[in-house]
Simulated assay, not measured.
Amino acid sequence: MLSFLSSTFPTLTGWLMLETNPLDQFLQGAVGACGIVVLCSLLRVYLFTEAHSTDRDVRPGEKPKHSPVGRRSGLTGALQFWVLAGILSVVGPRVASLVVLEFSLRAASARITGSRKGFEEQLLVQSQFSLGCALSCSLHFLHEGAPQRWLSLSIAAALSWYLAGLSGRLQEHVMALYRLHSSQRYCGVCIGLLSSGSSILPYLCRALFLTFAVAAVAAISTINQNFLSASEALRFWTPLTICYTLLVVYMQEEQHRQPSGNSALHTVVVRLGGLLVLMLTVGRWADVLHVLVCFLGEATCLLLAQDILDTATNVSIPSG
């Protein structure tokens, strides 16, 4: 009886499925969390400056047409970073690869059919956790089998931390002083944003495209490593492709009916719920656990970005 239960229900080690050194996994998660911080900070800077330029002609005493994104406290940002770093460290490369492929398909579909106001900004906000998975998955693929893996990941984490710090300081500077400096024209950073701040969004979109292009290759390779034969791979890829196609079609229709940021959490529940059902059918117990952890990661990203979603919905800005 005990042998039957032990073979039916996985042990804690099997659920966590630590395929690599825990230090390596944490460093990969830290890089992913830093990428999310950089994306959010630059997107907040972009939306703040564009909302300010839209409301520059408002007369004194009148209410601005748009309320810009709000400022986050340093404690909130630090807490979000460490929570995301821990979550991305737990999520295995297999589920991270599935998240990357799902978002890549959804982003391609949204790019083809997306013509509504602010869809690029909303897509960037919704890509936060997927971006963290993409960076973690790519690092796992690129450093697989490296003899000094921890050293390379440490360098990558240090550089990512530095970039995240720069983007965070830029965000704080813009939120506090952009209105004054842009009117007085004596701050080089704010003058540069005043003249070319609208180019931030196209640069972010291109960087996201390159990141997910590399991550998609890494994701397909990572998933295929788990199959011993072509028939086994076919039994996995066929339901996965059908599930992802149906999810993308449904979410496109849902977002056209409800284009506001309020549908973002509903979208997360639908697509991760579909992935959870799929993993219960053709996946492993560890995959099921990691998908459940992804729910927490997506919620951590989106709940703290509602002001960005609202601003992206209300501010009409040409994407260039």
Rank of each mutant, 00 (worst) to 15 (best):
T113Q: 10
K117S: 14
L177M: 11
F209M: 07
A156G: 00
H143W: 11
Q122D: 03
A215Q: 07
M175Q: 15
L166K: 13
S167H: 05
S130M: 05
R185D: 09
V95H: 00
A176W: 07
F212I: 02
A146I: 00
A213G: 13
Y178K: 02
R111W: 13
T211S: 13
L105Y: 04
S109T: 11
A110G: 13
F141W: 15
V125Q: 03
V174W: 09
G188N: 12
Q126W: 00
A108W: 10
C137Y: 01
A215F: 09
I112E: 06
F227Y: 11
S109P: 00
Y186K: 14
V214E: 08
C133P: 06
S221F: 13
Q122H: 12
L139E: 02
N224I: 03
F212N: 01
L123Y: 01
A156I: 04
Q122L: 10
F103M: 03
L142Q: 03
L151S: 12
H181W: 05
S182L: 05
V99Y: 01
S183H: 15
F227W: 06
G197E: 11
L201M: 15
I220D: 00
L193T: 03
K117D: 11
A207Y: 07
S229C: 06
A213K: 04
L177C: 13
L166D: 10
V214S: 12
L194I: 02
F209I: 02
N224A: 13
R235N: 10
L139K: 02
Q122K: 14
S136P: 00
P147F: 12
G197K: 11
A134L: 06
Q171D: 15
Y178P: 06
S152F: 12
S231F: 05
W150C: 12
S199I: 06
E121M: 08
T113F: 14
G168C: 13
R179F: 07
L208N: 08
M175V: 10
I223A: 04
E121A: 14
A134T: 05
A230V: 11
H181L: 06
L135H: 01
F119Y: 15
L177G: 06
E232W: 01
N224T: 12
L170M: 15
R179C: 07
L151W: 10
V95K: 08
Q128N: 07
Q148I: 10
A157Q: 06
Q171V: 10
Q148L: 14
L159S: 02
S136Y: 05
A213Y: 02
V217T: 10
T222Y: 05
V189Y: 07
L142M: 11
V214N: 04
T113C: 07
L142N: 01
Q171I: 00
A158S: 12
H143K: 00
L98F: 01
L124V: 04
T211V: 14
S160A: 15
F129H: 11
Q128C: 14
S154Q: 05
V189D: 03
Y203C: 12
A146F: 09
R169H: 13
S152G: 08
C137S: 14
R106M: 12
